[in-house]
């Protein structure tokens, strides 16, 4: 019974992984094609939308496989990685001369940094707790 169930789960994981890799490939392809159409006058919006929709699907499949016990770390880590908008903040804060735009960029860098460091550290703390018990249980 148990080994049968295990095999079934393994098969499920395998198909999931292959789907995922397929999607990742699609995604990579669409991104690699990005430079060419832009040069040919294709608006970024269409490219961006393609990437966006594909990424939504990747997110959908990846997140459904997250075990419910780890939903709190999932929230914390998604919170941390959503601070990747720091990229936009860095560009705004980039120029040497101070102006309104740079000030906003600087503030955004500070806020996003709070999130990046805070989010990753708190996720780490949580995961530490889960793996600590793992050893004790074994």
């Amino acid at each position: 019974m148990d080994s049968h169930k295990l095999a079934e789960q393994a098969a499920g994981v395998a198909t999931g992984a292959s789907q995922l890799s397929q999607q990742a490939q699609d995604l990579a392809l669409s991104i690699s094609q990005y430079a060419a159409p832009e040069a040919a006058g294709m608006p970024f919006f269409v490219v961006g939308l393609t990437v966006f929709v594909l990424a939504c699907f990747v997110g959908y499949y990846v997140v459904w496989r997250v075990t419910p016990a780890l939903h709190s770390p999932l929230m914390a880590v998604t919170n941390a990685i959503s601070s990747v908008i720091i990229v936009g903040a860095l560009i705004a804060a980039g120029p040497e001369d101070w102006n309104f735009s740079k000030l906003l960029g600087f503030l955004a860098v500070v806020l996003a940094s709070v999130n990046i460091f805070g989010g990753f550290i708190v996720t780490h703390r949580m995961l530490q707790m889960f793996s600590k018990k793992k050893k004790q249980g074994a």
Partner: peptide, 22 residues
């Protein structure tokens, strides 16, 4: 989308999908 940056779009979509599923 505003900054025409695919990284932000991808990560944003991942996080968005994650929150929606939760």
């Amino acid at each position: 989308f505003t900054l025409q940056n695919n990284l932000l779009i991808i990560v944003g979509a991942l996080v968005g999908a994650s929150g929606a599923i939760l």
